[in-house]
């Protein structure tokens, strides 16, 4: 079963420039594959996606088209959007469709509430997140707060 969650703010602009910082970027001269590695941070507007390794996947026109279809992040991935955060083993950020799919022991935290599952699909334009796969929600009642 899935849980629909409001995730992040509604004013995410998918046409903003995407900035990727990392320790290194290596490009295979044979087929042009580009991989960022070493505390990689993908930023766009208020979105921050950090991971150990990010693979650049180009659109249908291939590398020469210069259009990036998606960024595949792996290795302790953390997504921060506004004051919501989610962590998982892997994430795929499709820039054109402005969606992020996080997979593998996903833990989403909003304030004191936490939701666990296997797969989180975030729609940046609509500001929603759908968690699927053995979803467990942990709500901390207001009175227990220290």
């Amino acid at each position: 079963q899935g849980a629909q969650i409001a995730f992040g703010s509604l004013d995410h602009d998918a046409s903003l420039p995407v900035e990727v910082t990392a320790e290194s970027l290596s490009v295979d001269q044979g087929d042009g594959t580009a991989v960022f590695s070493g505390d990689v941070v993908v930023g766009q507007g208020t979105l921050r996606l950090s991971a150990a390794r990010v693979l650049v996947v180009y659109g249908s026109g291939g590398a020469s088209s210069g259009k990036i279809s998606r960024l595949e992040a792996s290795g302790s991935v953390v997504l921060v959007l506004g004051e919501d955060a989610a962590q998982a083993q892997g994430a795929v950020y499709s820039i054109d469709t402005a969606t992020i799919v996080m997979t593998g022991d996903v833990l989403l935290t909003q304030g004191d509430n936490a939701v666990e599952g296997q797969r989180l699909t975030v729609d940046l334009n609509r500001g929603t997140g759908a968690m699927e796969g053995r979803v467990r929600t942990v709500l901390t009642p207001a009175s227990d707060k220290p």
């Binding site: 046409s15 900035e19 910082t21 490009v27 001269q29 960022f36 990036i68």
Partner: peptide, 15 residues
């Protein structure tokens, strides 16, 4: 063969 940018890389992609 790899073309490697090192010692801190910053990429700007304009969608």
């Amino acid at each position: 063969y790899l073309l490697v940018f090192k010692d801190g890389v910053r990429l700007i992609y304009e969608p």
